[in-house]
Amino acid sequence: MDSPTVVVLGSVNMDLVTTAARRPAPGETVLGSDFATVPGGKGANQAIAAARSGARVRFLGAIGDDTFGAELTATLLDAGVDTTLLRRVDGPSGIASIVVDGTGENSIIVVAGANGQLTELTAAELAAIAAADILLCQLEIPIDTVLTAARHARASGTVVALNPSPVQSLPTELWTAVDLAIVNSLESEQYSVELTQVAHVVRTLGGAGAVYRGEEETELTVAGLPVEVVDTTGAGDAFTGALVATWNQGASTALNWANTAGALATTRLGASSSIPSSAQIAAALTTS
């Protein structure tokens, strides 16, 4: 089956990752054990994950004119993502400050930077969306831009996939344009009413696996893959990108593939740096 063309509209950040035995309480200082800068951002992570799972991926987003911007672009290119339409704007690139504790759980603060300047779409960006098989969006860029893209995709016959994270109030018009929603347990609760409008919903359950609900209430469940968790940062993005890359192969195949990708992503530190390749996912599926 041909690989789908996926356009990812979203954020690209430099993740500033600190590891410590535990995350600090309010007002408390704790000693960390390690620090790393790792390219990330939900949009970029998902674009890289889709590309590593075999999709043809174009990324729509914005970087700043700082040194982070050049590194972020290089990371996307190295993963095989088309950055022809990636904008370079005045000011800093987006960043995420991440603390990872001894159990692999994390706390994250995101500063939008250049991502906040993605306030409208050009004719070339709209044409790319119309020509794609799937448009994948998240919520780390202005919502009006996401809505414009989703509306244009729906009118053009492009499948609209949405990972509604971070949680925030969304216009009804956006939900009615969505064909596929990918949510975690918290997002599923927060958007429980809105998700009833969406034909296809995939809910991730962390280490417990994932559940798919389709049209006519068709439901599929896949169990978690036992792995040694190092860092959960970016695991949901690895899952989401892998899911859309294989969506044209059917919900069952895509769910199993994405579940494996998400699990493998927890075995390494960082977001984009932890996303597995197609070969790694296929090998894990063979042995599981």
Score class of each variant (00 low, 15 high):
Met14Arg: 01
Asp15Trp: 05
Thr19Val: 09
Ala20Lys: 09
Ala21Met: 11
Arg23Tyr: 06
Pro24Lys: 05
Ala25Thr: 11
Glu28Tyr: 10
Leu31Lys: 02
Gly32Pro: 08
Asp34Ala: 14
Gly43Ser: 11
Ala44Gly: 07
Gln46Asn: 04
Ala49Gly: 02
Ser53Asp: 04
Arg56Phe: 03
Val57Tyr: 04
Arg58Tyr: 01
Arg58Thr: 11
Ile63Gly: 04
Gly64Glu: 01
Ala74Ile: 03
Val81Tyr: 07
Arg87Ile: 01
Arg87Val: 08
Arg88Gln: 12
Val89Gly: 00
Ser97Leu: 15
Asp101Asn: 12
Gly102Arg: 10
Glu105Tyr: 09
Val111Trp: 02
Gln117Ile: 06
Leu118Gly: 04
Leu118Asp: 00
Ala127Gln: 15
Ala128Phe: 01
Asp133Cys: 07
Asp133Glu: 09
Leu136His: 05
Cys137Val: 13
Ile141Lys: 03
Asp144Glu: 14
Thr145Ala: 02
Val146Ala: 09
Ala149Asn: 02
His152Thr: 08
Pro164Phe: 10
Glu173Asp: 15
Glu173Met: 11
Val178Met: 12
Asp179Met: 08
Ala181Phe: 00
Ala181Pro: 00
Ala181Trp: 03
Ile182Met: 07
Ser185Pro: 07
Ser185Thr: 15
Ser185Met: 13
Glu189His: 15
Ser192Lys: 11
Glu194Pro: 10
Thr196Pro: 02
His200Cys: 07
Arg203Val: 12
Leu205His: 08
Gly207His: 03
Ala208Lys: 15
Arg213Phe: 06
Thr218Ser: 14
Thr221Tyr: 05
Thr221Glu: 14
Val227Ser: 07
Thr232Asp: 11
Thr233Gln: 09
Gly234Cys: 07
Phe239Pro: 02
Ala242Arg: 01
Val244Glu: 10
Ala245Asp: 06
Asn248Gly: 09
Gly250His: 14
Ala251Gly: 06
Ser252Val: 06
Ser252His: 05
Asn256Glu: 11
Trp257Met: 05
Ala258Ser: 09
Asn259Asp: 08
Ala265Trp: 00
Leu269Pro: 03
Gly270Gln: 08
Ala283Phe: 05
Ala284Val: 01
Leu285Pro: 00
Ser288His: 12
